[in-house]
Design a protein around this nucleic acid. Sequence first.
DNA 1: TTATGCAGTTCCATTATGCGGAACGCCGTT
DNA 2: AACGGCGTTCCGCATAATGGAACTGCATAA
Lengths: 284, 284
Amino acid sequence: MAAEQRSVHMDNHGASMTDERLATNGHSTSGTGTLGKAMSVLDLVAFSESPLRFKDLLAQTTQPRGTLHRQLSNLIDEGLLEVAPDHSYRLGLRLLGLAARAWDGNEVRQVAAPHIQRLHEATGETVHLGILRDIEVVYLDKFDARQSVRMHSQIGKASPSYCTGVGKAALAALDAADASERISRMRFHQHTPSTIISVDALESELESIRADGISFDREEHEPGIHCVAAPVSAHDGNTVGGISVTAPSYRVPMETLKGWSGLVAETARAITEDLSLRMGPRRS
Amino acid sequence: MAAEQRSVHMDNHGASMTDERLATNGHSTSGTGTLGKAMSVLDLVAFSESPLRFKDLLAQTTQPRGTLHRQLSNLIDEGLLEVAPDHSYRLGLRLLGLAARAWDGNEVRQVAAPHIQRLHEATGETVHLGILRDIEVVYLDKFDARQSVRMHSQIGKASPSYCTGVGKAALAALDAADASERISRMRFHQHTPSTIISVDALESELESIRADGISFDREEHEPGIHCVAAPVSAHDGNTVGGISVTAPSYRVPMETLKGWSGLVAETARAITEDLSLRMGPRRS
DNA sequence: TTATGCAGTTCCATTATGCGGAACGCCGTT
DNA sequence: AACGGCGTTCCGCATAATGGAACTGCATAA
């Protein structure tokens, strides 16, 4: 349970506009400006394992009682937070509406959807679409194998990029300098025996991914799960991402995965092309 | 210049926690406090039909250029907003992560899920779970009939309560005074020929719903779509909602819907009971 | 019952923070 | 080359967030 919680400093402010780093998703910690503070608090309740009450939140911030209380009140007034009868805080439903719009308004997702659906039908396995967000991967969509559907976890979830198929594919799609810079800021964690935890190993892995346009996750994130992935890029901004076909290794051997390589690469290429068609013309 | 929506300062305070009104979802408009202003802007881009650029947003606010620009910058810094290369604003991905937590951490949804799945399997039609949020219904979950799944719209979406099955069921589950108060604040819109648009008609409809524990949407919201619904309530706070089985009327006649009444009511009752079991003990 | 303490809520003087009018710079257009 | 629209930046001003402290209410202990 709760092992790491940061402590949200307060000496900040100063460089908000120019600020580049962003609190992707997994535990924000920053908190610049009034909005930032509010979002930090929101993140705190969002990513806590157990329900948090006022005192718990107080213990995790450096904020004084009065301030924290007002922040919570504001968040509640805005529908971003709710209070359970036992005074513990839950995320508010307004987030759902917002996210629903964010999700189905997302162009990358819209464009990729039919392609990954086809890929799912062709392989019969779970297909993911993720995009790189600073040093993490955020999953935007998935077509699940069986499972009576459900948004079920995953979508919206941020995962490390150095040990996932789409993560490595996306990193490989960046220019080497950019990738190296991001890698330098990563903190590696050995999720499984085969997780890549050295900068050098990762760099050379990216090199080989660049060479053949395909990346594999050889049970590097979850034991018993592996996948083939290929990079997708929206040439416009600098959004890069990837798609993957994931399967349990006991049922689908590496050979089969390799057999899908062409299909996956081709699908990724098609998505990238569709994206440039859709986003290119709209230039200014 | 400022028109309205300016001052508002601090005569609120006072009743913030207890505050009941809230900017559900469909266009907030309020904007109290710095956070409120920010969320108003966020809503603006969230619920706009077409991509909004800076000048478009400027036209829809009473805020001066500098202010609006800073607010947008802050939202971007927080990952709640993003800028497309053509300078139009899109919702940020951080919302997805937040919403994912809000969704699968939601107790009502967790408890109801197996029940509505069973209901879906029994009827073969689309089943919804929604909860009442002030005067609107927010859909929390759904089991879709066919349709290769996808979160596809709906979840997180706010709909009027006076013309939907779960909306009317939920209203009927409130005590009459509360319901009347909320009804008094509604603005009716004749979505279809059979939409109820008078307070009296709605009140008596609720009366009959209270009598037999079942509500119907007789194509009152979307032409050609009707449903059976029953109220679900979490006795704790004052959260009320409902579940429904929805189908196109050309394929499923009213008679069939009525035949499902018992099943729907029983499922709703079971959910309510499970909720009281799960939420009751945790009092303290 | 009365005492004790902890959790949540409210108050208000202080000042950091967001505000907003105006100037600036970048492009595409005439 | 000059214009005009649009996004971005600056900086003095005052609004709105801050946070220390007092207050309330509900527990458990005496």
